[in-house]
Nucleic acid binder design. Structure first.
Lengths: 301, 301
DNA sequence: TTAAGCGTTGCATTCAGTGCAACAATTTTG
DNA sequence: CAAAATTGTTGCACTGAATGCAACGCTTAA
């Protein structure tokens, strides 16, 4: 076992003060207490630490060694406190985010980039994958914050904010499957489609739509990669269904076109920002969440 | 103030055990105690150290920092204990002395015997061998104090005292090689000689003499044992060269004769008392050194 | 819904740590 | 030369902090 800090303090003070009584005064204790503290230390270390003389106390060699140890330990403690301070003042910190596939480009280039500029000492850990994987990561505390599409209601998750982001038909602009105006459900059965897997929220929403609207899409490709979906469309092999913000860059660049589906509430998936129910988050995460939440609400408008 | 060791132990155990209850079992405490110990730590450091979850506890970032601190501190403590052990063993158990071969009889029967009577709680460890071995032993901290013949200058050694002890010719009194008066160099070439090895200071001095005075001794025996040299002479097989004090007992008993060499500064070797440069010696060694030094100075007279 | 397991809290108890006073030993002082 | 003063230490009564016990709130698994 380690020696008691009190004992070491008594020992240290006795040596710097020169006498046990002076140390007792300085510490606001009784000489007997200081004496016993040192004696306890000596018993624990099985060594004489001070030489008791007439004019006070002097350190033995072992005492000098212990003094050195105490000083070093004190330095370690100071370092720890400063590290801890840095942590609580958010001069440092690490936030782990579970991010749905589609958010990588959009979010890391807007919210996270800005937050990172404002708080350069905070580092991020991005965990990218399907909606199911993201919720699992948050539930099992592998990530502080989750952001995913169409998160299933879950008692263990606390949905902080959400935004309606319906699915839109995405096609190559000027390609074989390009068309103007709103898309009709019939197109899904006739045109070649590429979809995300079921584990992804987008895939789950599509499966729901098939069931509720009674159609069967002509799925020629199913993948876990949004990049693969984009490549599918860019190659003019068919169409896909995605939330519009996922392909915002391409639409702006004029390479892809997004068409709303002409059915009320079609693909009414939501983007959800969530944490684990009841989890106390680090300060860095607590500050990041409002920023992400605001950005999400902005998507609603 | 430093945190209590108990608290840190509770904290550390809780994290390694995974749950507070497991830690309580392991430490033989109640879960409440462990919980409170950690809470106290958190209060003192004003930081959350663990995340309380369903399946136990997990360290926060601050917790990881504290864990690192605890581990480092534990290492410091271990180092201190080992230093203390070494110190107490030196003090009460062993002042380690590296003793040149020739000093065994003389010194262990005078200085050491007296010192041992005055300080019965101190025991000695005598490391006997050649001069080179002795200096190495001191340099590498295998011995506290070294005493040897013809120690070469060495920046890592601190020569505390030295005494001129020229070599003398030693022969069997009344034997075939006995003679009166001073010895001449020519005798070394004509008479059978036994010498110490080069590693011994005596051997090195003899080799120097051969080079500087231009003769070649008729060495019929080279050994690392002074007892063997004495036996060589006692058996009347020839002569040897040794510092006089090595054979002081035999000369006093009248069995051997020592003759000075009739050449100025011949075999002007020195006996040196030395410690490692910059070494902080245990108290016992610090007390022994003056005694040995006095004895050495007495040899000069 | 029930059961089990987690960490936490309230309360009575205990024991280690503390203060007070007296003591032995030494130096300083009258 | 002896008394006073100052040193560190020890005996004893006491206080307060740490502990154990039991109950609680909460979450998860069956």
């Amino acid at each position: 076992m380690q020696p008691e800090p009190k004992h070491i303090l008594s020992f240290k003070t006795a040596l710097t003060a020169g006498t046990i009584r002076a140390a007792a005064d300085q510490l606001g204790l009784e000489p007997s207490t200081v004496s016993r503290n040192i004696a306890s230390l000596e018993k624990q270390l099985a060594t004489a630490l001070i030489e008791r003389g007439r004019k006070g106390v002097m350190p033995t060699e072992a005492g000098l060694l212990l003094l050195d140890y105490a000083q070093r330990q004190s330095g370690e403690m100071e370092a720890l406190r400063s590290q801890l301070d840095a942590l609580t003042n958010m001069k440092r910190g690490a936030v782990s985010i579970a991010l749905g596939e589609g958010f990588v480009g959009d979010f890391s280039q807007s919210v996270l980039a800005k937050f990172s500029r404002d708080h350069p000492e905070i580092s991020f850990s991005l965990n990218v994958g399907s909606t199911d994987q993201m919720t699992d990561a948050v539930i099992e505390d592998r990530a502080h914050i989750g952001l995913a599409y169409d998160v299933a209601p879950n008692a263990r998750l606390n949905i902080i904010a959400h935004a309606d982001r319906p699915l839109v038909v995405v096609c190559q602009k000027g390609g074989k499957f390009d068309a103007a105006g709103e898309a009709r459900i019939a197109e899904f059965s006739s045109l070649p489609c590429a979809f995300l897997n079921k584990g992804y929220g987008v895939g789950a929403v599509i499966a729901d739509m098939e069931a509720s609207h009674g159609f069967r899409a002509r799925a020629v490709m199913e993948t876990g990669s949004i990049a693969a979906l984009k490549a599918f469309v860019r190659s003019d092999l068919g169409i896909t269904l995605l939330p519009e913000f996922v392909v915002a860059d391409e639409i702006k660049a004029g390479t892809l076109r997004a068409r709303k589906v002409a059915v009320l509430n079609f693909g009414c998936g939501k983007v959800s920002l969530f944490v684990r129910q009841g989890r106390r988050l680090p300060l860095a995460a607590q500050k990041l969440i409002p920023a992400m939440s605001r950005s999400l609400v902005a998507l609603n408008g």
